[in-house]
Amino acid sequence: MKIKVDYTRCTGCKLCEVACSLQHTGTVNPWRSRIRVFITEEYCLPVIAGPYTEAACNSKGVRVIDGREFDECVLCRASCPVKPIFKEPDTQIPLKCDFCGEPPDPQCIRWCATEALTLVDE
């Protein structure tokens, strides 16, 4: 099972961050969310926290998708020592998406009004 991201449908409302934070912490704090929305003038890109990796990579570059340039570090889902997001702000403990438990019921998908996020079978 996977969460499929269609960033072209994302409006940047960040309700996914609210939903995730409420689910995991009972409060609203995007920095404690396992999903973050990266916002530029051109697009909004939801990024979901993947596994932690101890090594910071040195291959950061630009990835072109459908003619649009993306920072690879932003696209990368890993929590790593050099990335500012996907860590608990106070303790720096890495965060990772857990599909909101078992059976999977990701709250970000339920709060997403534009279907930028959908649950798909692998």
């Binding site: 939903a19 934070s21 409420l22 689910q23 912490t25 009972g26 409060t27 609203v28 704090n29 920095w31 404690r32 702000p89 709250q107 339920r110 709060w111 009004a113």
Partner: peptide, 21 residues
């Protein structure tokens, strides 16, 4: 900011938002 907004009844709040949507 990196702080939180605390919710008095987070379960009730979540349900109310779901109903609204």
């Amino acid at each position: 900011g990196r702080g939180e907004v605390a919710i008095a009844d987070s379960e009730g709040f979540k349900k109310a938002v779901m109903d609204f949507l």
